[in-house]
């Protein structure tokens, strides 16, 4: 709950600092999806902490966290002060982006052109990080795939008939999905892009799971499909880079994609944003389904 409010407030201050894209991401991820995942975690870990089997483990973990924290703080010492006008980023990088990106990339949203073209390599890293997080959650929570057709959560949902909620969600889910697509493909012209669109798309599916149960959701969203497509998004992104490598240019140099340089940039940005969107949406859905399955396992143990 507090996470959600924090997300909303930070989205507002990003908005007032004119960072619309960041605000959008924060509103979708910070205020929308992450509190949901937090609640799912709380539901699956239970109310009380178990005694650790080995008393040394928490101490080691604490030591690791402290060391990492100190390293991060040391890392920030070399950075210029927050908002300093003479920071290297404001000296030559930002002015160049602002001056030349309209001619070089030819799209109105400068954030997208920085994210998807100048810094495409960094963004590839981010997408791979998200994909890795998905794999991590999968391997931690349900490494062995169990084929069960009983869904305990569905019984719980079926007991209280959420009639009003179901009808409203039936009205709302299609516009949310369409809005996700709009954000995905409008990222060149306004705030938005693959990350935001993926999260919005996943949020619609999660809403569906919450109101209609896992059984129906499995029929709508095929699990294998989601798993395969979370990888295909990254693959799509990476293969754009490989295409430019094979044509004798640098990795993720879009100029090989078309004759006209700005058209080439457009195509490149569209394709990699699509890759980002697919991966983000699939990983979010995947994580949520894993959490749900884990909660079911906990409920099953409680009933024994």
């Amino acid at each position: 709950m507090l996470f959600s409010i924090y997300g909303l407030i930070s989205a507002s201050f990003f908005m007032s600092m004119d960072a619309v894209d960041v605000a959008f991401t924060e509103a979708a991820v910070g205020a929308g999806v992450s509190p949901l995942l937090m609640l799912a975690t709380l539901a699956s870990v239970g109310r009380y902490q178990k005694k650790p089997t080995d008393p040394e483990i928490p101490k080691v973990a604490l030591l690791l966290v402290i060391i990492t924290g100190i390293l991060l703080i040391i890392g920030t010492l070399d950075m210029p002060a927050f908002g300093a006008a003479d920071a290297p980023a404001h000296q030559h990088v930002a002015p160049r982006y602002i001056k030349e990106s309209p001619e070089e990339i030819g799209i109105p949203n400068m954030v997208t052109s920085v994210l998807a073209s100048y810094r495409a390599y960094d963004t590839l890293g981010e997408v791979v990080v998200i994909f890795t997080a998905g794999i991590g959650v999968l391997s931690l929570l349900n490494f062995r795939r169990r084929r069960r057709n009983i869904h305990l959560i569905d019984d719980i949902i079926a007991i209280d008939e959420h009639k009003i909620l179901r009808i409203v969600s039936k009205i709302l889910i299609p516009p949310i999905l369409i809005f996700g697509l709009y954000v995905q493909f409008h990222g060149d012209f306004g705030p938005g892009g693959g990350f935001q669109a993926g999260v919005i798309f996943a949020a619609a599916i999660i809403l569906y799971v919450l109101f209609f149960g896992v059984k129906y959701a499995h029929q709508v969203v095929n699990q294998t499909f989601v798993r395969v497509f979370s990888a295909i998004g990254v693959l799509l992104y990476g293969s754009v880079g490989v295409v430019s490598l094979l044509n004798g240019k640098n990795f993720l140099d879009y100029h090989v994609l078309a004759e006209n340089p700005t058209t080439a940039q457009h195509i490149g940005i569209l394709v990699i944003e699509l890759g980002v969107g697919i991966t983000v949406a699939c990983v979010m859905i995947l994580i949520f389904f894993s959490f749900i399955e884990n909660i079911e396992k906990v409920i099953q143990e409680l009933r024994k």
């Binding site: 009003i164 909620l165 709302l172």
Partner: peptide, 12 residues
Amino acid sequence: FTSPTASHALGK
């Protein structure tokens, strides 16, 4: 759509 539904869900 959402605000009355949210209140309803909370109350329920």
